[in-house]
Design a protein around this nucleic acid. Structure first.
Lengths: 208, 208
DNA sequence: TCTCGATTAGTCGAAACAGACTATATGGAG
DNA sequence: CTCCATATAGTCTGTTTCGACTAATCGAGA
């Protein structure tokens, strides 16, 4: 798979919008927000303008016209070039077809979990479960709400995907907590011993 | 939650290693690789040296000594400061306790799925399922292998977590494909109509 | 009419990142 | 004994990306 000239996923979103019709950058943002796509693609002005600039440099989009309203800075309306259409569809196919490794914050945390005591770890994990449950409930509500506004599920698949992953994480964390507390986790003995030294190993700062 | 002075997760890994004992940067890399932690935290020299520099600037780590072996460039051995210990433990607690929103590549792809025809989408999703199954099989194998080398599960939780998420994704994609093919996905009618126009809407490039 | 807050529409500097490059040491093949 | 591949231990450069900031416009209310 050839390397992408502009690799920020926001560039995919920009091309997706221009695939429908020409637009100026700020309009892209409002359209994405309306459709809730900013939940799936990180959206920030600073990135947007540099991504738009990069796409233009690479010939994937091109300015169609610049209009000025009142005394605001003029806005450039862009359209997708033929090359841009090909790039967009190719990239989209790749993203849907090929799983890629993602580095998550939680994985980073889990990696060094052993630095905290088993007891504190389960407390934190239980807190996480509570927060996950809340989040899941809210995601369900939001999905029901927009579905009620006759947005077809077709346009909500990415939120469903996120929801499913959160649910899986919740189940897994629950199981992990049970294993630590019931003493069946392999390695627990050493973990406890490590933290049972004189004064313990963990610092005394608050867990905020 | 106070903002982190150095927010790159690699900084967490650096502090985690120095929490055990002083080390020089290259040794951090080899240690992380040995323990498989580079699967959970993105590890690159260019980032490592800038992260180490930032940590030193912020007073979270400090040079302990510089040694020179033969005519190689001299290596600086760092240790964690008291402030660094507090920062490390605080950050770790936060990562374990609080779910944060993660933006995945797949979510980006799913968001604009409708730009491809239902037929092509299912083909791509089936391919994804095949690749996911393969990946899952390999992850299982690797986990069994290292567990066989008496690495306690405690030190493999992050890989287990990743595996669980992949399995959940596989199940969900399978269901989605069934719904598209059986015609029960809400919005399918419009999706098909959109792509059934004269000549269709999708470009003719190969799906590589 | 003045003013406040929300909306629109961005800019700027610093941090993070990819990946190409440098340079020494080491061990085995020929 | 020389040559080459590999492992060690990084540096350098150009892009990307982020987060904080700026600044004009508009409508509502005092």
């Amino acid at each position: 798979m050839a390397k992408r000239k502009v690799s920020n996923p926001l560039a995919l979103a920009v091309m997706a919008l221009l695939y429908e019709r020409p637009m100026h950058p700020y309009e892209m943002v409002s359209t994405m927000r309306e459709r809730g796509k900013h939940e799936a693609v990180r959206l920030r002005y600073s990135s947007l303008y540099s991504v738009v600039g990069a796409l233009e440099r690479e010939g994937l989009i091109s300015p169609l016209s610049t209009v000025r309203e009142g005394r605001r800075p003029e806005r450039t309306v862009y359209e997708l070039t033929e090359e841009g259409r090909a790039e967009f569809l190719g990239w989209l196919r790749e993203l849907i077809r090929e799983p890629v490794k993602e580095y998550t914050q939680f994985a980073a945390g889990l990696s060094f979990m052993a630095a905290l005591s088993p007891k504190e770890t389960t407390t934190l994990l239980r807190e996480r479960m509570r927060l996950l449950e809340e989040e899941i409930r809210e995601m369900h509500e939001r999905l029901d709400e927009v579905a009620g506004q006759s947005v077809p599920r077709l346009f909500l698949v990415e939120s469903e995907h996120e929801l499913v992953l959160r649910e899986a994480e919740l189940r897994w964390v629950g199981e992990l907590v049970r294993e630590i507390e019931s003493g069946t986790l392999d390695g627990l003995r050493g973990w406890e011993a490590y933290h049972a030294g004189p004064g313990g190993k963990t610092g005394e700062e608050d867990a905020g």
